[in-house]
């Protein structure tokens, strides 16, 4: 991760209403938003940001970029992201959600080769409180500090940020991994980033039911992360969507008859506890657990 107020940022699909709205907010927050791309709209200016038809055009005049935020419609996200990778942009945030999963598969294969960091889809982005905002996060819940917040949840992230802020535990960064079934960067990747980030003293993970890499995440924390980590998992009472998960398990379940819904939230909690990662029962308990973990 390499994000400072000087980082040069691009917005793809900038003339869409949602993008335009958030571009203005990001700029107001202090993000160095230097260009936008919107095919057919090149040549105009939006909130003082020059708009180009192509990423490579924007790059020639305003680049190179450190990150891009993609707001284009879901069926165009793959194309926009490939265009960004081609232009050598190392960090891509996908705000758009509901992207066809096979498009994500193609994108992730490509990103793996080029070592491009993908955040999202369905991500509200990244915030470094008081400094940079990349995406649609509501900045009012955050305050500057030294807690790294990584979340696989949507608005619940704000609940946790608010609890930390009210307990005077400011945040070094807030990363929203996105809520689509297949997302780019994982807890694992961001844990590795924050483990060596000198502004981060402790890490809070916010997860929800569904998906399934919790064992890997928990083991990785136990093995490789020296900083205190606290987890919270929502959805102990809501069953998981049967489609999400491991292929063999799905097939086995379908073959053996009707799929019985089982929540994986409890499973995640168990995996974290087994790796001796403190798990909060409710958002308001997170600050206490963080303080306790920091004292050790």
């Amino acid at each position: 991760m390499n994000l400072t107020p000087d980082s040069k940022v691009l917005v793809q699909g900038i003339t869409q209403p949602l993008a335009s709205y958030h571009a203005a907010r990001m700029k107001a927050y202090g993000t160095n938003l230097v260009a936008g791309v919107s095919a057919g709209q090149g040549g105009q200016e939006l909130h003082g940001i020059p708009v180009f038809d192509l990423v490579e055009e924007a790059r020639h005049q305003r680049g190179p970029f450190d990150a891009t935020i993609i707001f284009v419609e879901s069926y165009w996200v793959l194309d926009a992201a490939l265009e960004a990778i081609e232009a050598g942009i190392p960090q891509i945030i996908l705000v758009t959600g509901g992207i066809p999963p096979l498009d994500m598969v193609r994108l992730l294969r490509k990103a793996q080769i080029t070592e491009t960091l993908i955040v999202g889809p369905s991500s509200s982005g990244i915030i470094v409180p008081g400094k940079v905002l990349l995406g649609t996060q509501e900045s009012n819940f955050y305050s500057p500090g030294s807690i790294g917040l990584i979340s696989r949840a949507g608005t619940l992230t704000y609940e946790v940020a608010l609890a930390l802020t009210q307990a005077e535990l400011g945040q070094s960064i807030g990363v929203n991994l996105g809520t689509d079934a297949i997302v780019g960067s994982s807890f694992h990747q961001w844990l590795r980033v924050l483990a060596t980030d000198e502004n981060t003293q402790a890490i809070v993970l916010v997860d929800q039911t569904g998906g399934g890499s919790e064992e890997e995440t928990a083991q990785y924390i136990a093995k490789a992360i020296d900083k205190p980590v606290v987890a919270y998992v929502a959805g102990c009472h809501t069953p998981v969507d049967k489609q999400v998960g491991n292929a063999s398990a799905i097939i086995a379940a379908q073959l053996s008859g009707p799929v019985t819904n089982a929540s994986t939230a409890q499973h995640k909690v168990a995996a974290f506890k087994q790796a001796k990662v403190p798990v909060a029962e409710r958002p308001s308990q997170i600050p206490d657990l963080v303080r306790k973990a920091l004292k050790k």
């Binding site: 949840a153 949507g154 608005t155 619940l156 809520t179 039911t209 929502a234 959805g235 809501t238 409710r282």
Partner: peptide
């Protein structure tokens, strides 16, 4: 938001 709802339900 679904996750906020899940937390509230919990």
């Amino acid at each position: 938001g679904t996750c906020l709802a899940a937390t509230t339900l919990d």
